[in-house]
Amino acid sequence: MHEPATDADGYIWPTCVACPRQLWTAEVGRQACRPCEEKTAARIVELPALFRQLDTTAVLMRGARRPGAGSSGSKTPPIPPRLEVLALVGPGGMAARLSAIEDAWRQELGWTVAPWRGSPRQAVPQHVEFLGNNLLWACSSYESVADDIEEIRRLHGECAAIVRQERRPGRVKIGHCPERVGDEWCWTPLTATAASHRVRCGGCGSRWETLGEWRELRAAQERVADEQQRQKWLAA
């Protein structure tokens, strides 16, 4: 039941749309694997609490200047500096991003559009309830669920990083994509971040996610670089 089937006669065994793992025999026919479903479910459950932690004056104003401190006489109070917090708790933030996923699922299911649910503070718990109740369906049958799983992961990560007062890690260049696109190498610049082990090429869509795949990526980059250097030497 929980063994991945072996390839036969060149048949390519289906993989999860959200990660590169092969589906178990019992998962065949699903879009996303059960581990991805479970991780997404846990993130969905945590979103309301993260929203409540962000939606406080203390978090919004953290680091703001006190009125009159070093002031030049202006009567206008300082704008809260936590714009990244406002972007998550405001009208276009978490509630809107969850609403977009809910609307897409409702459309796919043939259901009516979700009713207006009030302020973001009122709406987030209801969006979360809907997504949690219908996540199994989405992971089983919804072809675009990979994008929604990734959006929920990003949203959860953004909120958690602010709550934990973490700095968002910067991206570093890690060479070029060595995959073939037609008769040419893709060679799109690749970047990575310490926050994720995943690397995705923005040119051809190739992905590297495990330590073994990272090693294969480095070896392939070196092979392509050597081949390019050889071609330049022959053309000289």
Rank of each mutant, 00 (worst) to 15 (best):
E27H: 10
P115I: 14
P67I: 02
N134Y: 13
G68I: 13
Q221L: 00
W137T: 03
T6N: 06
I12M: 07
C16D: 04
G170E: 12
W137I: 00
V145K: 03
P20H: 08
A8R: 14
A87G: 05
I162Q: 04
A95K: 04
A8D: 14
A87C: 07
Q31K: 13
G170W: 02
Q228H: 00
A100L: 08
A138K: 01
I79D: 09
A194C: 01
A160E: 13
E102S: 11
R82E: 00
W13C: 08
A32Y: 14
C139F: 03
H197G: 13
A236N: 11
A104Q: 13
R52M: 08
W111N: 10
V113M: 02
C33Y: 05
G110L: 01
P178V: 00
G202F: 02
S196L: 04
W24I: 00
R223N: 00
A138T: 00
V199F: 00
M94P: 01
Q231S: 07
S140W: 10
L50M: 12
A100C: 04
A220E: 12
E213C: 00
E108Y: 01
R34W: 08
W233K: 04
S206V: 03
R154V: 15
V59Q: 07
P91I: 07
G70Y: 09
E151F: 05
G212M: 01
P78N: 15
V163H: 02
C177N: 05
E46L: 07
Q22C: 03
G202T: 06
L211F: 10
A69I: 02
V17N: 01
